[in-house]
């Protein structure tokens, strides 16, 4: 399918989007939804042909967090984003729709502190066991603990 085909299919069949999906660049579609509708949209995208979850990105925008699900069909990548409040960055787990999300969500939790409700195995993935709880290094306001080298 060409990126135009994929876009048309999404517009026609995927429910729960809060904005018109757009072709941002060749083979790159962006879409948006709210946290409560994420699973609906992800299932819809999957049914529309996007059966591969390539990655889940987490971003600290300063005034909010953003979680972006990158799903694809062949070369066409759809980036579905949702905004989460800073105080309670909570979104349902996508593992029921895309099993590979199990590791990507652990990473987003570990480094950015996003909570994935219902995750079957919410253990740290990358930070070692001695890492202090509640310290999320990818957050913009995170500072390394005092003492030691200047953070590069």
């Amino acid at each position: 399918m060409t990126d135009e085909d994929v876009l048309a299919k999404i517009k026609a069949s995927v429910l729960g989007l809060t904005e018109e999906p757009k072709l941002a660049r060749p083979r790159r579609i962006t879409a948006r939804t709210t946290p409560d509708k994420v699973l609906t949209v992800l299932s819809g995208l999957k049914d529309a042909g996007c059966r591969h979850l390539s990655a889940i990105s987490s971003v600290d925008l300063g005034d909010a967090f953003e979680v972006i699900y990158h799903v694809s069909v062949g070369g066409v990548l759809v980036s579905l984003r949702t905004s989460l409040p800073k105080a309670t960055p909570l979104v349902p787990t996508a593992t029921g729709v895309f099993p590979v999300a199990v590791l990507y969500e652990r990473e987003a939790h570990d480094l950015m502190g996003i909570e994935f409700e219902g995750h079957p195995d919410p253990r740290p993935l990358l930070l070692y066991e001695g890492w202090p709880e509640g310290q999320y290094p990818l957050r913009k306001d995170w500072k390394p603990p005092t003492g030691g080298e200047k953070h590069a």
Binding site: S54, P99, V100
Partner: peptide, 23 residues
């Protein structure tokens, strides 16, 4: 496909996905 495999692991299970051709 369901488990999100990529590269030779996916192609070794007959999934025709290669970023060089598809994207």
């Amino acid at each position: 496909v369901a488990l999100g495999a990529v590269g030779p692991v996916a192609r070794g299970s007959d999934v025709s996905f290669d970023v060089r051709r598809d994207d």
